[in-house]
Write a protein that binds this DNA or RNA. Structure first.
Length: 745
DNA sequence: TCGAGAATTGTTTTT
DNA sequence: CAATTCTCGA
């Protein structure tokens, strides 16, 4: 929505209420970000509030960045002083400064989910718990749930009701000890420790209460109990708390989001002003009514109904296909037909699970339609990136045993599991860190034959540490790659995958360059009187820990492919939601649980309301899930859309054999059956015969620049394309990975 | 100690 | 189906 259009009455009312608690119930597409940003500008301009006293909290980095730039555009001066950050980033900032007050070291590492898994594995080994009996995953999620509810390990132990919980309690305690020993916090700890800090140290709390006199929280329906407490504590003194949310868009229950936070806001903050934003500026009437039709089946929601001044628009398209392959093919085809002007950015294809993206991607590549895949495997989770980061972490925080262990034998140095466990138990005996144990190992003969190799490793790290003092991070990474032999090992592998890894590392390096440039630009920390002693490397690692994905340049017009969750907060002219099937969306687990069903329904509501002009919902009669062919009926949500809004089409390829009755078996899996001959034959992708370019074409690569295609070879999974780049010379790459763009000139 | 091949296992969704 | 873990031979 354009920033300069007039605000409607409700929006203005919400904006102008600045003193005391306020709940803004902002339906999808009702302009809530607009209200928030204008409210900030209003506080500063009309109410003479210092930007310094404003805190705006979001959930995602994307949302924070978006809000930041819109506020910057609106506020003429002093905008940098406004704190706009995610919950996690805010907490890190506070903890870096004050966590020593509750007995931690300010230089803590932040563990991501992989680190957590590794830590838990170690814990369970130590406690002699069979990982088959009790999965580390489920222990971790139990711990996470506990932390979200602010239950520490002691209390968990006390309240453990059965044997299983007792075991988990033991893991919890040991896990927490391990993190503590490694000087690390996990994501949940960031919030929990901040709240504990506030509760333990009135001075710190008072400092931040005074600082943040005006607090705004976006996506309030997604807050969990710790987050609520965090906000509640901060707002306690001035009570200028404004939360914006939509209970119908609460889709993160699995992550501890407590929908009661929004439903009971008025009880928690008596005298709260409540404003409902119900006018939708995004979708056409039919789409909006479809959304309303679905969501009204949920109970226990705040009463509201979105309306629009726009016309009916096109009807909602409902499609039924014979197979997931056909679905993907038809969606691709339709987009191609509907997009004559090449403005592919208008389209998005949404789905329930990331696994569904692959089949779509294949078709997009085959059709030569540019697309952008959001989510999936995080950039920072890739092996090579984690390896490099582990080197950096080792340099920055030698107490981070996990990082040290990760790189000790990467690349291969002939230091194996036997040595690691010997050094590990040596470290445990002496109560020293793994790294220190490594240092002493050669002398005390612990490591035996590996002593020399360990010594070489230690020297390597010592060099890095020395150099890290004076080198920019990017150069340090290059040094690590070279001296550690990592680069050479990759080169030796020599295949395209190795090259892709190298490219990713290059991307990390350029990220580091950007980071340090930004750092020298404006340092918002400096003016806050933060001890400037936090070295750039530490800050870089911190940033990287809190950012899920690298923001790849969004150059060019591309169709967006992403999960429904990732789509929240976005909008597109035309939206395709694929896989509208019972058993997939809603998932099998949700079907006999009404709370889960409501969550899925909200997710469906979120998906529908992303569409501005045209919405297409499709399902496939058969689809391969986890390697087995499954048959699904249409999602029950489709039946909740009023018939008169719908335009239906059914694939001619569907035969009308009835599907088995629903209650018969919960998973309608037919895995044992022989495949009908029709499958595979008809839908076989004729091996991506169509790349959008051919030999001799001029193409552009996101980073390598412009070049000419020399050769296209039919590889195992993808085409191998050789390009002669003008600047960088000859490179071989996978077509799917390199995403080359044909130049028309 | 390491790599290749076999076996097994799993799914939501993410800061 | 694909990613991870396991097992075994060298």
């Amino acid at each position: 929505m354009a920033e300069n259009t007039q605000m409607n009455e409700r929006q203005r009312e919400a904006m102008e209420w600045t003193e005391g608690p306020e709940l803004i119930l902002a339906g999808a597409g009702s302009g809530k970000t607009r209200v928030l940003t204008h409210r900030i500008a209003y506080l500063i301009r009309e109410k003479q509030v210092s930007p310094w006293n404003i805190l705006a909290i979001t959930f995602t980095n994307k949302a924070a960045a978006e809000m930041r730039s819109r506020v910057d555009a609106l506020v003429e001066s002093g905008a940098e002083a406004i704190w706009v950050a995610t919950f996690h980033a805010s907490c890190v900032r506070i903890l870096r400064r004050f966590i020593d007050r509750i007995g931690y070291d300010n230089h803590f590492s932040i563990y991501d989910s992989d680190d957590q898994k590794a830590a838990m594995r170690e814990v369970m080994k130590k406690l002699n718990i069979d990982p088959k009996q009790l999965r580390e995953r489920s222990v971790l999620s139990a711990i996470s749930a506990a932390k979200n509810e602010m239950i520490d390990s002691e209390r968990y132990e006390r309240e453990a009701a059965d044997y299983l919980e007792t075991r988990i309690a033991a893991c919890y305690r040991a896990y927490q000890d391990l993190l503590r020993k490694n000087n690390a916090l996990d994501f949940d700890d960031l919030l929990l420790k901040t709240v504990q800090l506030f509760e333990a140290d009135p001075d710190v709390l008072a400092y931040y209460q005074e600082r943040f006199r005006y607090i705004m929280v976006d996506e309030y329906q997604d807050t969990n109990t710790v987050q609520f407490r965090f906000v509640e504590l901060l707002a306690k003194k001035y009570r200028n708390l404004c939360v914006v949310g939509d209970d119908d868009q609460s889709i993160y229950k699995f992550r501890g989001a407590n929908i009661k936070n929004i439903l009971n806001f008025e009880q928690a903050f008596p005298g709260a002003k409540v404003v409902k934003l119900e006018q939708n500026y995004r979708s056409s009437g039919n789409i909006l009514d479809a959304a309303n039709g679905v969501i009204q089946n949920n109970e226990g929601r705040k009463d509201k109904r979105l309306w629009t001044a726009a016309g009916r628009g096109e009807k909602v398209q409902l499609r039924r296909y014979a197979s997931a392959a056909e679905e993907a093919e038809q969606i691709t085809e339709e987009i191609k037909v509907r997009c004559q002007d090449g403005a592919y950015g208008r389209f998005a294809v949404l789905y329930r699970t990331n696994a569904q993206s692959r089949i779509l991607e294949e078709r997009f590549v085959a059709a030569g339609i540019p697309y952008r895949l959001v989510g999936g495997v995080n950039f920072y989770q890739r092996r090579e990136i984690k390896d490099v980061l582990a080197y950096l972490k080792t340099v920055a925080n030698a107490a981070d045993d996990l990082a040290v262990q990760r790189i000790l034998n990467v690349p291969k140095r002939g230091i194996g599991a036997a040595t690691v466990s010997a050094v590990g138990s040596f470290a445990a005996d002496r109560e020293i860190s793994f790294f220190e144990a490594l240092r002493e190992a050669p002398a005390s003969g612990i490591a035996g034959r590996s002593s020399e190799k360990i010594q070489r490793f230690l020297n390597l790290i010592a060099v890095f540490r020395r150099e890290s003092e004076k080198l920019p991070i990017a150069d340090l990474i290059r040094l690590v790659l070279e001296k550690s032999g990592y680069q050479e090992a990759l080169k030796e592998e020599g295949d395209l995958e190795a090259q892709a890894r190298m490219e990713n590392i290059e991307e990390l390096i350029s990220k580091a360059v950007d980071f340090e440039r930004d750092l020298s630009d404006v340092s918002d920390r400096a003016e806050e009187g933060l001890p400037a002693d936090l070295p750039p490397l530490d800050r870089f690692l911190e940033e990287v820990a809190l950012v899920a994905d690298i923001d790849r340049a969004e150059e060019g017009e591309r169709v967006t492919l992403m999960t429904l969750h990732a789509a929240k907060g976005l909008e597109f002219e035309e939206v395709y939601i694929s896989g509208m099937e019972e058993g997939l969306f809603p998932g099998n687990r949700s079907i006999d649980d009404s709370e889960e069903m409501e969550e899925e329904r909200r997710l469906c509501y979120v998906g529908i309301t992303r569409a501005k002009q045209r919405l297409s919902l499709s399902s496939a009669k058969s689809r391969i899930v986890n390697g087995e062919l499954r048959f699904h009926r249409e999602s029950p949500f489709l039946a909740e859309i009023p018939e008169e809004l719908i335009e239906r089409q059914k694939s001619a390829r569907i035969n009308d054999d009835p599907l088995p009755a629903s209650g018969a078996h919960r998973s309608s899996s037919y895995s044992g059956q022989p495949k009908p001959a029709a499958f595979g034959k008809i839908f076989q992708v004729e091996h991506m015969k169509t790349l959008p370019y051919e030999v001799g074409d001029r193409v552009r690569h996101a980073r390598f620049g412009v070049g000419s295609v020399l050769e296209i070879k039919d590889g195992k999974q993808d085409f191998e394309v050789t390009v002669e780049f003008d600047e960088l010379g000859r490179r071989k790459m996978l077509a799917g990975f390199a995403k080359l763009e044909k130049l028309t000139s």
